[in-house]
């Protein structure tokens, strides 16, 4: 019997959106000198200085503030964006759910169209896709943990769906 997935809604944490209209190279440089890491590219995410930085769109990132204060982080990011972009508080725009256990990959194939079972979808990878008509975003943290982001209006239904799937899960399939 393999490790059945467990999932739990995460407590609300500040979520910020950094969007650039130009100056990608300059902004990346400012980010690197501020945080000592490179702004993640398409489909990637990194953790740096208590921030989970997730590539969201071309020129846009979603930043979850794990430790630190929302206002101060927002100001710091605005400095990094400089004249090349803007930062917006989107804390209420997504609910985060943490899925743990070895079989989160199997759970995410239910009602979906994304190859969550592909081993190349590994820690540090992020993907936006659709599950049962709901847009969700996955952030693979470790081999046994993935964070899933969904609009709060859909959260109750998504968790109810995963609960019913997990009950009947074919863990060997």
């Amino acid at each position: 019997m393999t490790d059945a997935p467990r999932f739990k809604a995460a407590p609300a944490e500040p979520l910020l959106r950094l969007e650039l209209w130009g100056g990608l190279a300059e902004t990346s440089a400012r980010f690197t000198s501020a945080f000592g890491a490179v702004l993640p590219g398409p489909g990637q995410a990194i953790t740096v200085s208590g921030l989970r930085v997730i590539w969201r769109e071309p020129g846009a990132w979603m930043i979850r503030v794990e430790t630190g204060e929302r206002g101060a982080t927002l100001d710091r990011l605005m400095e990094i964006a400089g004249a090349d972009g803007a930062v917006t508080d989107i804390s209420g725009a997504a609910t985060r759910c943490v899925l743990t256990g070895g079989d989160w990959r199997v759970l995410l194939t239910h009602g979906g169209v994304f190859d969550a079972e592909d081993p190349a979808f590994a820690p540090g990878c992020v993907a936006g896709t659709v599950i049962e008509h709901m847009a969700v975003r996955f952030d693979v943290i470790t081999e046994t943990r993935v964070d899933a982001y969904v609009a709060p209006s859909y959260a109750v239904d998504l968790f109810a769906y995963w609960t019913s799937v997990a009950r009947g899960l074919d863990v060997t399939g």
């Binding site: 398409p42 489909g43 169209v113 993907a127 936006g128 896709t129 659709v130």
Partner: peptide, 17 residues
């Protein structure tokens, strides 16, 4: 359901587009 290769995300299903 078409399979569309997004330059950023790789091969994905049409329903995402």
């Amino acid at each position: 359901m078409l399979r569309i290769v997004c330059p950023h995300c790789g091969p994905r299903a049409q329903v995402e587009f």
